[in-house]
Simulated scan of single mutants.
Amino acid sequence: MLGTGRLLPTLLAVIGLAGVVLGWRAITRAQRNTAIVALAAGLLSSIVGALHAANAAGGLGTGNGLAGAVLAVALGVVSLLLGGLALIRSRRA
């Protein structure tokens, strides 16, 4: 069962993963709206994940969601990069 300390980072990691998928899809199909959604998902995932990681007490394996928060930040950054690349490519086309 997920506790309250792990639920938010897990949800943020899923949002970050969705942003990565949408960013990749926006790059391959040159879709501007999908790129903007990927940017928003990456921004949300990385900022809130970083805030949760900064406020987490203890280290990895203590059940406070630190691993999920780190994963959310990493996926959020990748989502931001892919969404930004797709947005640049859609403006050129």
Rank of each mutant, 00 (worst) to 15 (best):
L80C: 14
A57W: 10
R32H: 12
L66Y: 02
L75P: 02
G83H: 00
L87W: 10
G5R: 13
V70G: 13
S46N: 06
G42C: 07
I88V: 12
G76H: 02
A93G: 12
L17C: 08
G61K: 09
T10I: 05
L51R: 02
L44E: 04
R29Q: 14
A13S: 15
V70M: 15
L81E: 03
A72L: 03
S79W: 06
L66F: 07
V78M: 10
A74Q: 01
S45G: 07
G42Y: 02
L60V: 13
L51C: 13
V37Q: 08
A69S: 15
L7Q: 12
V20G: 02
N55F: 08
A67F: 08
V20Y: 05
R6P: 01
L7H: 09
G42E: 05
T34M: 15
W24E: 12
R92G: 06
A40K: 04
G49C: 08
V78Q: 06
R89D: 10
S79T: 02
L2G: 00
R91L: 10
A18M: 13
S45L: 07
V70F: 14
A41R: 00
A38Q: 09
G63T: 02
L44Y: 02
N64C: 03
R6W: 01
R92E: 14
A26F: 04
P9R: 04
G76P: 01
R89G: 12
V78A: 14
G76K: 04
A40Y: 03
N64T: 09
G61D: 06
T10C: 07
L11V: 13
M1P: 11
G23V: 05
V20P: 00
L87H: 12
T28I: 06
T28K: 14
G19T: 03
G84Y: 07
L39G: 12
A41I: 05
A93V: 12
W24L: 14
G58Q: 06
A50V: 01
G61S: 12
L17Y: 01
V48A: 15
G19C: 04
V73S: 02
A41L: 13
L12A: 08
A57M: 09
N64W: 05
V21E: 11
S45N: 10
L7D: 02
A69F: 11
G23N: 08
R89L: 13
I27H: 07
A56N: 05
W24N: 12
P9V: 03
L66P: 05
V70A: 15
L8M: 11
T28S: 14
I27Y: 05
A72N: 05
T62P: 00
A72V: 08
A56Q: 06
A40N: 05
V77I: 14
V21N: 06
L22H: 06
V73N: 09
R91G: 11
A74F: 06
I15P: 00
V14L: 15
A69K: 08
V37N: 00
A57E: 15
L80K: 01
G68A: 08
G16L: 10
L71M: 09
W24M: 10
G61N: 07
A13K: 10
V70I: 15
G3D: 12
W24D: 11
S90G: 03
